[in-house]
Write a protein that binds this DNA or RNA. Structure first.
Length: 466
RNA sequence: GGCGGCAUAGCCAAGUGGCAAGGCAGAGGACUGCAACUCCUUUAUCACCGGUUCGAAUCCGGUUGCCGCCUCCA
């Protein structure tokens, strides 16, 4: 079995074949760090982290690179408004980014390159493009000569002429052609800048990714990923730069995630419906948010609303409950069932189904439906009067491993109840034995106010954080 | 104008030729002292019109509606 990926380049699912056996070189376009991230930024972080985790689960080594754009127009604007220096703002929001996506269970990239730390490489990349005739300098700016690159438009499937006729691109006076894009931008008075052969300035937006992908992963990489909106012009321009420069294919598989809408409307500043990740995390379990995002195929749009989050919360709770049910039963299980092989086979069958679904272009929606199947199956097993330890362990491991592949933490933080709570539970159990239900209910209500929910099972009372 | 996507139950969402997954919500039932957890039962002319086929949600043509990109944007 092999993994299939929908490749934007060819507009179809293709069997993934790595450049180097057992290794995946993956570059994901990261954030421009001028503000806190919103949930739209969180989606690619979560989606491609899941892709990475799945590759790792399937035995690949993943060299995962996620860049930070730490200098550009938006950062300079923010610096002016906040009366701070660009590097300070960048540092601050990089930390905020890591904290936010960390809450969603996103692993740290292997490399987190920053534009400002790769200035020499960027400048020499541009110099090389100029010497090859793909770029030209005009009055301190450097532009890429788009028409010079024959395959321009192969990712977004646009021809140069179509782009031009429909374009609203301003004809820059310094450009030879409206389609040409900036590689190096001359600094205005007082702006942060770097010295270059063309004077003081800063890199254009696209050149950083070409340069850093090459530096950390090589001329050709396996997977390049980002939001759907980056397809054009950002990724198209990266291809032009990199392939003109390296004279070989830039990326073999291009992956793009879909948008997030808020209450059926596009998230936009003018509508004022931006949802910042850190604010959302204050109100909701970030793990549940991740679960919610993965419940839809990554290329499809997701709508975001309080109602849908509630639905996701309940669904995720069901899976967590199943796991807790199994764990709880393990304390009192035996080794008596004679049909244990059948159950173990069932467990393995579901494991294989999960893999089959994820192999198909990371179909997390179907993978999650397998988690529900496992939950149901485990709960049914638990209805038996006698259970086998190996089967229970099989369910526990399966649920834990597969949720982990999706970056979900199934084990809720269960600090031990303090002595007072412990005593209350014992007290209540005695009351129930004495059939003093009024007292029992009173204790249960009391604990509920403290956020502790009690559940009576045939194997005794257990509790959890509500 | 160019390129592309989507339309499946009250809601969310899989399914790309063979009796329409799964979840949430609702209803009924079982278990329980009552709850909770859990289990069982229950809800679909797959936007519309043609065509291809033994057979279509799925392929082809058309219609309608919504959305994205072509400009900074995840």
């Amino acid at each position: 079995m092999s993994i299939k990926i929908y490749n934007t380049l060819t507009r179809q699912k293709e069997t993934f074949v790595p450049l180097e056996e057992g290794k995946v070189k993956m570059y994901v376009c990261g954030p421009t760090v001028y503000n806190y991230i919103h949930i739209g930024n969180a989606r690619p972080a979560i989606v491609f982290d899941t892709v990475r985790r799945y590759f790792e689960y399937r035995g690949y080594e993943v060299v995962y690179v996620l860049n930070f754009t730490d200098v550009d127009d938006k950062l300079i604007k923010a610096a002016n408004e906040l009366e701070e220096e660009v590097p300070d703002i960048a540092d601050r929001f990089i930390e905020a980014y890591k904290e936010d996506v960390g809450a969603f269970g996103v692993k740290e990239a292997v490399y987190h390159p920053r534009v400002t730390e790769n200035m020499d490489e960027i400048i020499s990349f541009i110099k090389s493009l100029i010497s090859k005739g793909y770029a030209y300098e005009t009055e301190g700016d450097v532009y890429f000569r788009t028409r010079q690159f024959d395959n321009y438009g192969k990712l977004s499937h646009q021809s140069v002429d179509e782009l031009r006729s429909g374009s609203r691109i301003e004809v820059g006076e310094k450009k030879e052609d409206p389609l040409d894009f900036t590689l190096w931008k001359e600094a205005k008075e007082g702006e942060i800048s770097w010295n270059s052969p063309w004077g003081n300035g800063r890199p254009g937006w696209h050149i950083e990714c070409s340069t850093m992908a090459k530096k950390y992963l090589g001329d050709t990489i396996d997977i390049h990923a980002g939001g759907q909106d980056l397809t054009f012009p950002h990724h198209e321009n990266e291809i032009a730069q990199s392939e003109a420069h390296n004279e070989t294919d830039f990326a073999r598989y291009w992956m793009h995630n879909g948008y997030i809408n808020i209450e059926n409307e596009k998230m936009s500043k003018s509508l004022g419906n931006f949802v910042l990740a850190y604010e959302l995390i204050k109100q909701h379990d970030p793990q549940m948010i991740r679960f919610f995002m993965l419940s839809v195929q990554y290329r499809h749009p997701i709508n975001f609303s309080a109602e849908l989050l509630e639905s996701a919360k309940n669904g995720f709770e069901r899976i967590r409950n199943a796991y807790e049910n199994v764990k709880h039963r393990q304390e009192t299980c035996m080794n008596l069932t004679d049909d244990k092989e059948e159950w173990l086979q069932e467990i393995e069958r579901m494991n294989q189904t999960f893999i089959k679904e994820m192999d198909d272009d990371f179909n997390t929606a179907n993978a999650i439906s397998v988690l529900f199947d496992i939950a149901k199956s485990a709960n049914l097993y638990l209805q038996k009067e006698q259970t086998d330890s190996e089967v229970l362990q099989g369910y526990a491991d399966l649920l834990k491993n597969l949720t982990h592949v999706l970056g979900l933490e199934i084990e809720t933080a269960q600090e031990l109840p303090d002595e007072e709570v412990d005593t209350k539970i014992k007290e209540r159990e005695q009351a129930r034995k004495d059939r003093n239900f009024q007292k029992a209910d009173q204790i249960r209500d009391e604990l509920k106010e403290k956020g502790i929910v009690l559940e009576d099972t045939s194997q005794g009372t257990r509790w959890k954080r509500g």
